[in-house]
Design a protein around this nucleic acid. Structure first.
Lengths: 209, 209
DNA sequence: GGTATTTTACCCCAAATGCGCGATTGATCG
DNA sequence: CGATCAATCGCGCATTTGGGGTAAAATACC
């Protein structure tokens, strides 16, 4: 049996909103009772409604779609949000995903794909426009930025990141604490930092951990 | 005009390899000259061949597919690797992506989808099985783990992560260094850490930055 | 075989850090 | 109105850290 998917739309452009609603309402298996012209009203009302999938624009008057998801998702963990926007800059994409969006489509997505995406997200998938998917995947690729550190130094940096002090590291590696200090001094030099805090930050952000 | 996509296969199972090759060879626009039964031979020979897309199994005799990509990708930045595997655990997925894979398909992917995915990745997309996409997207969702820190403490933690010391922070925020110390002591208590290094690590890993 | 680089080790010292203990002011809350 | 908590400021002290050197082995590299 095929359940009906309840869809809501948050979109300020009158025409787009109407068209989207028409497409969804005109397709068997889909249901679109609620549409919103801004994030405020959506944030206020959605928690009281039963909706499976929300199509969310980003650029909205007042608070934007990303902020709206940030507020709604914690209250509606079982509702899936699909961004439907013209924005395809990295910040919009990753901020949306971090906020809790489960999909990201560009507004040039043809209606058939849109409907398929709604079904897909409802079934536990994560529809994305191809270019978006590539950006997401690429964010994982760690450029092999050749570490300037030697194996031993890397090892010690790891322990440094664990919050260990000279003495603990020395004991763990069966070294003199003097040696550990030497290594750490070299690490600082090579990473151009002057404290544990900076070293830890650089270690985590840049590379190996 | 439609270019021909050169595909290579790395797969130890005789039958699967043959079937994949047949599918690709039997489709106009696709070309499959090279197949490999293990990662070693692929790592050795691929750099000397012209290949657009590589279908890579993970479980292979000797070194695995993830390790193979790690070694090949730096030499072949313009070649796209698609994982084609039965493994769908988080570690396999994320390790693959980090190693440089541009797509991730499960072996139950039907031939038509596989062919489409090859074309998609060649055109700059990132094909993924729906469940895989969801896991990838979910990895971005930051649980709103309510920060136990006050606004001021958060502010100071930020500066701490920049590598600033008490005095610098104090000057920047027009505070007494004693005050800064107090805040930091509270931060440590709340985060259950005992040093800057641990605090920085927790701050970056857990949440706000 | 000679030259880096890595790894090991040590010294001195000023500054920074972590910790314990206390205190005042506001704001928030029940 | 009392209680709690955040934010501010303070002191003392033992320990850790970072920066300045130096140098001998071991290893790698050419």
């Amino acid at each position: 049996m095929k359940e009906i998917i309840h869809v809501a739309i948050v979109e300020d452009d009158e025409e787009i909103r109407q068209v989207l609603a028409l497409i969804i309402r005109g397709t068997p298996g889909y249901f679109c009772k609620h549409t919103f012209v801004d994030a405020e009203s959506a944030v206020k009302e959605l928690p009281n409604l039963y909706v499976n999938v929300v199509l969310m624009d980003i650029e909205l008057p007042g608070i934007n779609g990303i902020e709206a998801i940030k507020r709604l998702k914690p209250q509606l963990p079982d509702t899936d949000f699909i961004m439907l926007t013209v924005k395809h800059d990295d910040k919009s994409i990753f901020d949306s995903l971090c906020a809790g969006a489960s999909g990201y489509l560009l507004k040039d997505t043809p209606p058939s794909d849109l409907l398929r995406s709604i079904e897909e997200v409802y079934k536990g998938g994560s529809p994305m426009s191809t270019n978006i998917a590539r950006k997401v995947i690429f964010s994982f690729h760690q450029n092999p930025s050749p570490s300037p550190l030697s194996a031993r130094e890397t090892e010690i940096l790891q322990l440094l990141c664990e919050g260990m002090n000279y003495r603990s590291i020395a004991e763990k590696l069966f070294l003199s604490s003097h040696t550990v200090r030497s290594h750490i001094k070299n690490i600082y030099k090579k990473l151009h930092v002057h404290s544990r805090a900076e070293a830890v930050k650089k270690a985590i952000n840049d590379k190996l951990l």
